[in-house]
Amino acid sequence: MRILDCLETIGRAALRAMRRAGRMGVFLGGMVAYAVTPPWKPRLCLRRLFFIGAQSVLVIALTGAFTGMVLTLQGFYALSRFGSDAFIGPLVALALVRELGPVLAGLMVTGRGGSAITAEIGIMRIGEQLDAMELMGLNPFRYVVVPNLVAAVVAMPLLSAMFDVIGIWAGYLIGVRVLGVSGGTYLGEIAQYLETRDIAAGVWKSLSFGVIICWVSCYKGYTCGYGAEGVSRATTQGVVLSSVLILVWDYFMTSALF
C-alpha cells in the first residue's frame, strides 16, 4: 500500500509538471505566432524597449565594469603562474563575449525587467484588465506580451554587447594601469584571438535569453493566481525560473554551438 501511494504521488506530480510545461509551450507558440503576424503595435514596442532596454543601461554598465575588473584580477593571478600574463586581454574578452556578457546581462534584465513585466501583467490579470480587453474583442497578447518580446529580443543583444565593451574597457584599466600589462599587448592580443564566430555565439545567446525572459515573465504574470499574494508569488517564481532557464539553456547552447 505504502509503495502504491508513493508511486501515485510521484505520478501525479509528474503529470502536473508535464501539463504545466505543455501550457508554457503553447504560450510560447502563441507569443511567437502573434509577434510575426499583424497588427503590430509599434508605439507599445518602443515604450517597452525604453523600459527594458534604455532604463537598464546604468545597471548593465556597472555590472559590466566590475565583472571586467574582477575577471582581469583573477585571470592575471592565474596566468602569471604560468608566465603567460600577456594573454590577459583575450582571456577577459573571450570570457565576456562568449559567456559572461550574455548570461550576466540576461540575469540583470531578468531581475530588473522580467520581474516588472510579471508584476504588471499579474496586476492586469487580477484587476480584470486582460478580461476587459478580451471583451472589447481585442487580443491582450498583442498589447501586453508581443511588445515585451520585441523589446527583449532587440534590447538583449545590445545590452550584452554593451556589457562586453564596458567589461573589456574596465579590464584594460585594471590590466594596464594597475597590473602593468602593456596597453598594446592587451588590445593587440584581443584583436588576434577574438573571432567573428565568438561574437556571433554571444549574439545568439543573448537573443535566446531575450526570448526566455519575456516568455517566462509574461507566462507567470498571465497565469498568476488570486490577489496581491498571487502576483508576488508569480513574480518570485518568474525571476527564479527565468534565471535557472537562462543558465541551463546557456549550457546546452554552449555545448551545441562550439
Partner: peptide
C-alpha cells in the same frame, strides 16, 4: 472576438487600464 465587438461589459471593479489616463481608457 468579432461578436464581442458588439458587446459592452462594465466590470464590478471597473477594470480600467491602470497605466492609462481616464481619457485614454475611454479612447482606447
Amino acid at each position: 472576438r468579432r461578436l464581442r465587438r458588439r458587446f459592452g461589459f462594465v466590470f464590478q471593479g471597473g477594470a480600467l487600464f491602470d497605466s492609462m489616463t481616464v481619457y485614454d481608457n475611454v479612447a482606447f
